[in-house]
């Protein structure tokens, strides 16, 4: 439990496990809400090229491109944090190393996201600027 002293007294800031739990929920809800929209936009291929191309063109916009990067970041976080949870479920003793596992997960996450972000921002710049 990280308790820090400030001018207003002691402030509870949670622990790594709690933050990972909140992030897992927030990214999970974001992904399922996007999935609902994504099922509908993909289903429009069944209504022909005019309908599908019109809706897919909505995604080809620099603002939506940044949202797309955020979605990919959410998906990869949820995937890697889920693997960490499963690892502890299968090997319960790992819970003693949970803090280290979370930092290892975040290291892998940032190492993976950095090149993905460079490539995806490259798409936005190439297409719109």
């Amino acid at each position: 439990m990280a308790k820090r002293t400030s001018a207003f007294g002691r402030l509870y800031r949670g622990s790594e496990g709690q933050w990972s739990w909140i992030a897992h929920r927030v990214t999970g809800v974001a992904i399922i809400l996007f999935l609902f929209a994504h099922i509908i936009d993909t289903a429009l291929v069944g209504w022909g090229p005019n309908a599908y191309n019109r809706v897919v063109n909505v995604y080809k916009n620099p603002i939506v491109g940044l949202l797309e990067l955020g979605l990919v970041a959410a998906v990869i976080y949820h995937a890697l944090n889920g693997l960490r949870i499963m690892a502890i479920d299968f090997w319960p003793k790992l819970v003693d190393r949970n803090r280290q596992l979370i930092y290892a997960t975040m290291t892998i996450y940032l190492a993976g996201m950095a090149p993905i972000a460079v490539i995806m921002i490259g798409h936005i710049l190439k297409e719109h600027f």
């Binding site: 291929v45 995604y59 798409h123 297409e127």
Partner: peptide, 15 residues
């Protein structure tokens, strides 16, 4: 979304 040009190449013909 990442390799092969991302979603800019996705259209009816691609699908």
């Amino acid at each position: 979304h990442v390799f092969g040009g991302g979603i800019d190449r996705v259209n009816f013909q691609f699908v």
